[in-house]
Amino acid sequence: MTRSTTQAVATAVTPGWTAAPGQYTRWDWRAAANFVGGGTGAGMLLAATLFAPSTASYRVQAGLGLAIVAIGLLCIMAKLGRPARALNIFRHAKGSWMTREGFAMPTLFGCGALSLWQPAIGAMAVIATLSALVFLYCQARILNDAKGIPAWSIAEIVPLIVVTGLAEGAGLAVATTAFVPDVPTAGGIVLLVAALVLRHVAWRRYRAALVRADAPAAALAALAAHARRWLPAGDGLPLLLAFAGVLLGGTAGVVAVAAGGVLAALGGWAFKVTLLTRAGHYRPKSVSLAAGLARARARS
């Protein structure tokens, strides 16, 4: 028996297991990319449909949004164990939010693609945007149904994921206007500011609920580390830059708003990477006799 074989056998026959919460690691950056794509894409389509300054800007923003959603889906396809069976995800619409997410795709991409060739922003854009919002909501509920992982399954994750996606998309949408070139509309900037404020409120509610729910300490620590780095840079600074951009006006104003938009998007992406790859800790288990007895006594 070779040394590597010996080690393999030793690994295989030592199934001691600790009650401490383990971390789910199968969903890596590729899974995070899917959540990033769904959120950013939905936010961009919403911002483009409602507030694009011109049809040309709409095409850039919506086209980029669709591409980002598609890239996220390609990433998750690469993570599937059996990608050849991917169409099986459509088999459980009654119960699985992952199936429902899948059902939002045809109208999202079909109508979204058609809308890029329309002479004006119209019905196709609206249908694609609504589909993107459904797609984003399904993603939030996917995490909410991950009942083994407190940081994902807590109810407050749903509004947080939705408004984070909107902030990312609104941020990138205003940023693209600097390259079209065009000037962000007031509505686009208001959407960005509103999404950032709502994201901050949703984040605070989420963190407080996690602490109340006695979430695993390692998950709380990972999220706290993210907050230290990204709350100022991803929420505070973009707000300041948006206000500065409005006050400055002109090219400097466009650049300031665009920079704020990019930071808002980066903050959301960093949150999702942290949530998926560093805060996915399971609940601690206990077979403490005293705890079990206490539960049994309470029941009887």
Binding site: W27, G81, P83, I89, M98
Partner: peptide
């Protein structure tokens, strides 16, 4: 399909 959702 090996998506791993059930594991979460």
């Amino acid at each position: 399909i090996g998506c791993g959702y059930c594991m979460t």
